[in-house]
Amino acid sequence: MASSPYPWLKPAVLVGGLSPVALLALDFARGALGANPIERVLHQTGMLALIVLVASLACTPLKLLFGWTWPLRIRKLLGLLGFAYAVMHFLTYAVLDQGLAWGALLADITKRPFITVGFLALVLLVPLAVTSTNRMVRRLGFPTWQRLHRLVYVAVSLGVVHFIWRVKKDLTEPLVYACVLGLLLAVRVAESVRKRRTRASLPAT
């Protein structure tokens, strides 16, 4: 394999992607997170999970639209970072906010659709994180692996629904995510339609 043209890319994404955690931890320790620090951490980790996961979904469309290959190098890292934020978001809710009150957690997850979809999104991301290694790609075979990993669209869509249903009144922000997600999906659909057309128009041999 040729050496990477941007050797700093992955470390930079990793450090940049994790720096909000360091900032949050620092502010938490300093008492600089306002009157309701747990709520703040809950919101920020949720937002970060969504932002990073949407960014991971932008990698392939960027390649398709502009022919860039560098986004593909960080796609997996972004996916795993987004998963890590989703886990932190869930743990903030379950441990810090609800104090691991199992009854309350179970009632929330089963009775409240906004929490149900958020939890489902997290659960769907687990098999994707588990099969993210090169060894798992080989073991599953690329077509199967690829089909499995299309679940990410379902998971992130559920994440956006979770955000929409959480908002009390102003839907602008969650709808921005919904639009970006829709656009990214549209690029892929357009690409697969184009491919099929090209294949169909090939002369029969």
Binding site: A35, N36, I38, E39, D97, Q98, G99, A101, A104, A107, D108, K111, R112, F114, I115, W165, R166
Partner: peptide, 19 residues
Amino acid sequence: VDHPRWSQASERRIGEFRR
């Protein structure tokens, strides 16, 4: 009587850690 999106059974007093 719960709010449809969260329980009203407990609350966080601002400044306290546990509900």
